[in-house]
Amino acid sequence: AITFRFEGQEKAKKFYEKLMRQNLEATIHIHGDEVHVTVH
């Protein structure tokens, strides 16, 4: 698994949606202002 870190939720959401379109499995974790997107 690879984890990407984002400042702010907007960028993270766009990235997450892009992964979903590519049929990749990903989970999102929100830590205050920092958002972690883990790709499995």
Rank of each mutant, 00 (worst) to 15 (best):
R21K: 11
N23Q: 08
F4I: 06
T38Y: 10
L24F: 12
H31D: 10
E34S: 08
K13D: 05
L24E: 02
A12E: 00
M20C: 05
R21H: 05
A26K: 01
V39W: 13
Q22T: 05
V39R: 03
A26E: 01
F15A: 02
H31W: 11
A1C: 15
V37S: 00
H31R: 09
R5W: 11
H29A: 11
G32S: 04
E7F: 14
V35M: 04
R21T: 07
K13F: 14
H29Y: 13
H36F: 15
K14W: 12
E25L: 14
I28R: 00
F6R: 01
V35P: 00
A1F: 14
E7G: 09
L24R: 08
F15I: 02
T3P: 02
R21L: 11
E34R: 06
I28K: 01
T3N: 03
K14G: 05
E34M: 10
K13C: 14
D33L: 10
F4N: 01
G8N: 15
Y16L: 11
Q22P: 01
E25T: 14
N23M: 07
K13W: 15
A1R: 13
H31K: 08
H40E: 05
A1D: 12
V37R: 00
T3L: 09
E17W: 11
K13N: 09
M20D: 02
T38K: 08
R5G: 04
F4R: 02
G32R: 06
D33Y: 08
H36I: 14
A12M: 03
R21N: 06
E10M: 07
T3V: 14
E25N: 15
L19R: 01
K14E: 13
E17Y: 09
F15V: 02
F15T: 01
A1I: 12
H40L: 12
I2Y: 09
Y16E: 00
E10K: 07
I30Q: 08
A1Y: 14
R5I: 15
F6S: 01
T27R: 06
E7I: 14
K11I: 11
G32V: 04
E17V: 08
I28Y: 08
K18R: 11
Q22F: 13
D33V: 09
D33M: 10
Q9I: 15
E25Q: 14
I28F: 07
D33S: 12
Q9V: 15
L19H: 01
R5H: 09
G8W: 06
L24M: 10
A26I: 11
T3Y: 07
T38E: 05
K14L: 13
E10D: 11
I30E: 05
I30S: 06
H31G: 03
F6D: 01
E34Q: 09
E10S: 07
V35H: 03
D33K: 11
E7S: 14
H31I: 13
E34F: 12
I28T: 01
A26C: 04
E25C: 13
E34W: 12
G32D: 06
Q22I: 09
H29K: 08
N23T: 04
V37G: 00
H29R: 09
A1V: 13
I30C: 03
V39G: 02
F4S: 02
T27P: 00
E17I: 10
F15R: 01
A26L: 08
A1S: 13
L19Q: 02
N23A: 06
D33I: 08
R5T: 10
A12G: 04
